[in-house]
């Protein structure tokens, strides 16, 4: 038996919005510590890793570890039926091949429940090595979203160049080119609006904006976003989900062709 109730249901709604465009379906792994999900998009360019800790739910009950194969588009459709103030409860039996969502209004007057079929999915789990990244940039999530959206007008990919002075995002295309430079400003009063850079070594990497725009769907989850980069390894884009977990996106860089291949 699995049961998890989240008083602030809107958080789950936002999580779904953050992943449903990138993944059609995914396996939710549930154990006593919480729920997690790891999946690559169909083209194997990016990966979503989502963690929701058990402490965030009240109550949380997981008698037996289970993997739930879920069609995320359908789940998101059902979650659209919940109001932002509603609490959301997820239930699944040990046998059975369905999952149930219960939405409750704050005063308990209205209770709706939806049942959904589970899917058979085979997923490869990827081992992600612990890496110390040469540059870790924290910036306001809305600012990052704006940058990705603006630069997609110019080109298909963005080059992120990180030095100790700041971070520069550049794109070029048929109509011309564009650069956006952000300087560190850790001194502002509002923590959420700070841009901070922790750097061991400068790095320059190029990424497809198409995927970054998918990642930015997570913007409503968190005021700040963290970009972790090292040369020639995938970028990590992380959004905290309140106190209860995080969603991390990994994106393979674009690689300049060596002359001989």
């Amino acid at each position: 038996m699995f049961e998890a109730r989240l008083a602030q249901g809107t958080l789950l709604k936002k999580v779904l919005e953050a992943i449903k465009d990138l993944l059609n379906e995914a396996t939710w792994d549930c154990n006593e510590n919480g729920m997690s999900l790891q999946a690559m998009d169909s083209s194997h360019v990016s990966l979503v890793s989502l963690t929701l800790n058990a402490e965030g739910f009240e109550p949380y009950r997981c008698d037996r570890n289970c993997s739930l194969g879920i069609n995320l588009a359908s789940m998101s459709k059902i979650f659209k039926c919940a109001s932002n103030e509603d609490s959301i409860t997820i239930k699944a039996g040990d046998e059975g091949d369905t999952i149930t969502y219960v939405f409750e209004s704050p005063n308990g007057d209205k209770v709706s429940d939806y049942e959904m079929k589970l899917m058979d999915i085979e997923t490869d789990h990827l081992g992600i090595p612990d890496t110390t990244y040469s540059c870790v940039v924290k910036l306001p999530a809305a600012e990052f979203q704006r940058i990705c959206r603006d630069l997609s007008q110019i080109g298909e990919s963005v080059t992120i160049c990180c030095t100790k002075d700041g971070v520069r995002f550049s794109a070029s295309g048929d109509l011309g080119s564009g650069n956006i430079k952000l300087a560190q400003n850790a001194n502002v009063d509002k923590e959420d609006e700070a841009v901070t850079i922790e750097m061991q070594e400068a790095c320059t990497l190029t990424f497809a904006l198409r995927y970054l725009n998918f990642f930015c769907k997570a913007t409503p989850l968190s005021p700040q976003v963290t970009l972790s980069m090292s040369n020639e390894v995938p970028l990590v884009v992380e959004y905290k989900i309140g106190e209860m977990g995080h969603v991390r996106y990994y994106l393979a860089p674009k690689i300049e062709d060596e002359a001989d291949s």
């Binding site: 396996t27 194969g69 085979e122 990827l126």
Partner: peptide, 15 residues
């Protein structure tokens, strides 16, 4: 680049 050329598959779960 492909993500699966950076990270290796460690296990496969089936639902």
């Amino acid at each position: 680049g492909r993500l699966d050329s950076f990270f290796k598959v460690t296990s496969t779960t089936s639902t």
